[in-house]
Design a protein around this nucleic acid. Structure first.
Length: 408
RNA sequence: GGCGGGGUUCCCGAGCGGUCAAAGGGGCGUGGCUGUAAACCACGUGGCUCUGCCUUCGAAGGUUCGAAUCCUUCCCCCGCCA
């Protein structure tokens, strides 16, 4: 191993902050030192699965870290797993992921790239986008030489495989193959470093073995923590409905950020804002109470919007949020809803129409006092309301759905 | 190939001939409290022209006055043995 220069060691420890693992010890510093010595940037690999195109803040943790590498002058190699997606990854649970068509994958990949570029630097000297179909669509003979790099016992070391093995649950060959294919990606793109979530640790490490078998330099690996969703408990994921998307509109992003539990704030600050917020890492969990906690969360929400949209958008979103949720005033902009012709409006029908819920659900909301007309709370008996009474009023359903009613 | 277990409403999961739109929990929603936090309380959570009607318990048939519950065939999942 080459001698670390102090500068490389310092850079390595800066880049590795917040990471769960940076392995092997000293490898990142050595890579940095080597890159500096050869006068070339490091190639930092990150693979994504184009089955679910929407990027949320959970992805943003790793993407933000990749951005730090870019800002330090290195190249991010973004690998779109188009080939692996086409096969269908059964990883983890019993449900097979659906196989996607070429068109879906293309569409998802495009969406993903566009969203990732909100965080990554798109400068072609700092970003390389590749598809693993470029090299994984290989002849059987090549696949066989890939699979001979690894034994079943090695694969069974992975925690989830080990668990399922001892519980006598099924493990498909395809699943076993995935780490190998992913590892081969590292060979194909000559990765110096690979990043991923902590759930990727095994795969990232296995890629090192595969690189060695192919006579390549072995990558350093770094794993980032998994961000909790807006419920503060389970990991952020679209299927759990607890995600904040990086392309969510400012108002929505602000609101969702305000709804996270206090305990999750510290983590959000640290993992998402730490390199761009002066107070980020100084926020101490558990120290905040009452209004100071609320204010800290406001700053969190503000900074997230400022990061992913703009400072102006953040100011607007905060102001609007204040209006509606702190001062309980009406939003600045309310969409119009045309009242049907006639003497009376059937309120459940109107709500169902405007907000895309069923009439039954609208009726329940009405009965439970979730519907207001102007200042007046409607009840179960107010199914039909005179048009003259509704015209010009603001209809509010629940806390956040508004329409200004206009007679037609 | 043989043997066995299983597919229930968003999820888990009870039901095993009528009293079942289907227990219980989770999640979610609404109201209260409040900081769109937590905790807590209440109510709700298939649809509709709503004291009733319609559709739902993997699919299709059948038995029955009546089926999520019984029978037949099919599809799918899981385990064991080979």
């Amino acid at each position: 191993m080459p001698q670390d220069t102090p500068a490389a060691a310092r850079d390595a420890s800066w880049l590795a902050r917040n990471a769960v693992d940076s392995l092997p010890d000293g490898a990142l510093a050595a890579k940095l030192e080597e890159a500096a010595r050869l006068g070339r940037p490091m190639r930092v690999k990150f693979g994504i699965d184009p089955t679910a195109p929407d990027i949320h803040l959970g992805h943003a943790v790793v993407l933000g870290k990749l951005r730090e590498f870019q800002d330090a002058g290195h190249v991010v190699v973004l690998i779109i797993g188009d080939y692996t997606a086409r096969v269908g990854d059964p990883s983890g649970r019993s449900t097979l992921r659906p196989m996607l068509s070429g068109e879906e994958i293309d569409a998802n990949s495009a969406t993903f790239q566009e969203q990732a570029l909100r965080i990554l630097d798109s400068d072609p000297r700092k970003l390389e986008v590749r598809r693993n179909g470029e090299w994984l669509d290989m002849p059987m003979i090549d696949l066989l030489s890939l699979v001979r790099t690894t034994t079943v016992a090695q694969l069974l070391e992975r925690e989830d495989f080990a668990k399922r093995w001892s519980a006598e649950e099924p493990i498909s060959i395809l699943e076993l193959l995935y780490p190998l294919l992913q590892g081969y990606d590292s060979v194909a793109v000559d990765a110096d470093v690979e990043l991923g979530g902590t759930d990727q640790k095994f795969n990232l490490l296995l890629a090192r073995d595969i690189q060695r078998h192919y006579g390549r330099a072995q990558q350093a690996i770094m794993t980032m923590p998994i961000l909790a969703g807006t419920d503060g408990k389970r990991k952020m994921s679209k299927s759990l409905g607890n995600q904040i998307g990086v392309t969510d509109p400012p108002g929505e992003m602000f609101g969702k950020a305000m709804s996270i539990p206090d305990e999750a704030m510290e983590e959000y600050y640290r993992l998402l804002l730490d390199s761009r917020s002066p107070e980020g890492s100084t926020l101490e969990a558990g120290k905040l109470q009452g209004s100071s906690a609320r204010d800290a969360k406001r700053r969190l929400a503000h900074q997230l919007v400022a990061w992913l949209h703009s400072e102006q958008a953040a100011q607007d979103a905060e102001q609007e949020w204040d209006r509606v949720f702190a001062q309980h005033e009406l939003p600045q902009e309310i969409a119009d809803a045309a009242l049907p012709a006639g003497e009376t409006v059937h309120v459940p029908a109107l709500i169902a129409e405007e907000f895309g819920i069923s009439r039954s659900e609208a009726r329940r909301l009405l009965e439970q006092g979730g519907v207001w007309l102007g200042e007046e709370q409607l009840g179960g008996e107010d199914q039909d309301v005179a048009v003259s009474r509704a015209d010009g009023q603001v209809l509010r359903v629940g806390r956040r759905r508004f329409r200004r009613l206009k007679a037609s």
